[in-house]
């Protein structure tokens, strides 16, 4: 599905990530930890071709990321849902249109997906906020809206970059439950976080692999938790 082989990424003359190799199997759940600036976000960006490796190979759904043109990358991103810490929305569109944005840009008839869209908003608990503009939403609401947008295209993989960074513990738990539900539906999940309590809470409910970026390299960190 997503496969990194001896991947390195250099930025500004220095190597940020080195010799990373991993395969994200279908239906797996991964946490990615590490100190701030270790390269967690960079790792995730390599997984959806927002960045290209400076060495090694990233294979996305069987294709070499570096050989893809921009349209092919766009098609890959329809199969990978991404949730950022600073959820990026189009501030001039109401929440429901932001959530439906992946459908809009892929040319699908949004009106025909209205039932799914409403179910999805109900699932993330935002039914009554459908017509609110993004600046009117709280941090937790934005995170849940970002998750709803990430999964509306029924992607194979969901990547979340510090999804609980700006929200309280109760809301973090709610978001985690949504991610666990997605994983139980067969989605591959990778969550970059330094919130160890969140990881422990997840491991109590689901089989998750914990990876750690340390000294530019990827390590299995499950034993530490």
């Amino acid at each position: 599905m997503i496969e990194l082989e001896n991947v390195a990424y250099s930025y500004g003359g220095g190597e940020l990530l080195s010799d990373l190799s991993i395969k994200l199997a279908p239906g797996s759940f991964h946490f990615l930890t590490g100190p701030s600036g270790a390269g967690k976000s960079t790792f995730l960006k390599l997984c959806y071709a927002a960045l290209m490796p400076t060495a090694g190979q990233v294979r996305l759904f069987g294709a070499d990321a570096r050989a893809m043109d921009r349209d092919a990358i766009a098609l890959v991103r329809r199969r990978v849902g991404v949730v950022h810490q600073d959820c990026q929305f189009l501030d001039h569109l109401p929440l429901i249109e932001n959530v439906a944005l992946p459908l809009t840009v892929s040319g699908k008839d949004v009106a025909r997906e209205e039932t799914n869209l409403k179910d999805l908003l109900h699932w993330v608990g935002l039914t009554n906020r459908a017509s609110a503009l993004p600046p009117e939403l709280s941090g937790g609401e934005r995170q849940r809206a970002a998750l709803a947008r990430a999964v509306i295209m029924a992607p194979d993989v969901v990547l979340a970059d510090e999804p609980t960074g700006n929200i309280d513990w109760e809301m973090s738990q709610r978001l985690l439950q949504l991610l666990i539900e997605l994983n139980r539906m067969g989605k591959t999940i990778m969550v970059a976080t330094h919130d160890l309590a969140l990881i422990r809470a997840a491991k109590a409910q689901v089989q998750a692999r914990v990876l750690r970026i340390s000294n530019r390299r990827l390590q299995l960190a499950g034993a530490d938790l």
């Binding site: 921009r70 991103r77 840009v105």
Partner: peptide, 11 residues
């Protein structure tokens, strides 16, 4: 944002 959600450059 549009690129993040899979919009092509043509779109």
């Amino acid at each position: 944002v549009l690129r993040l959600v899979g919009a092509t450059d043509t779109y």
